[in-house]
Design a protein around this nucleic acid. Structure first.
Lengths: 63, 63
DNA sequence: GTGAATTGTCAAGATAACTTTCCATTTTGA
DNA sequence: TCAAAATGGAAAGTTATCTTGACAATTCAC
């Protein structure tokens, strides 16, 4: 899956740590997802969508 | 997470095996997801949404 | 230009998502 | 009614997701 996390973070001027804190996951998890090393679980994808106020499909797309 | 798989299958008169075949996963995976034993991965959630022609959020909700 | 913050990544370990095989129970239909 | 199909779930194994801790490289602010 591809994702728009880096851009969405940049728009809000959030560090990976800021996002990790908001999501209650480790910074390494945010980095791994953002750089495409692995996909988030579905519950985490929902939390990410919530944090950005977007639908999952607006953040994640198949590659 | 809760999900509407059982109803969506019933609307289409699909067995768990029918859905599993369409998704290219085992029938036990469909059963486990449907009965809430575990959540699908994000890629599988996307495939499920595709198969039903719905958004992920229309199929899965937090519980 | 130096120090702090940010980012990328690795390693090792835990837990969750999936597989195949198998069996018991329930539902369906002729 | 009785067989076939469908469902629910256990066990054991693999892979993916996530953790903490660490370290190097890059970017940022003064």
């Amino acid at each position: 899956m591809k994702n728009r996390l880096k851009v969405l973070r940049a728009e809000r001027d959030w560090s990976q740590q800021d996002l990790a804190t908001a999501l209650e996951v480790s910074r390494q998890s945010v980095n791994a997802i953002e750089t495409g090393r692995y996909d988030p679980s579905l519950p985490l994808a929902f939390r990410i969508a919530d944090v950005f106020g977007l639908a999952i499909e607006e953040i994640f797309q198949r590659d």
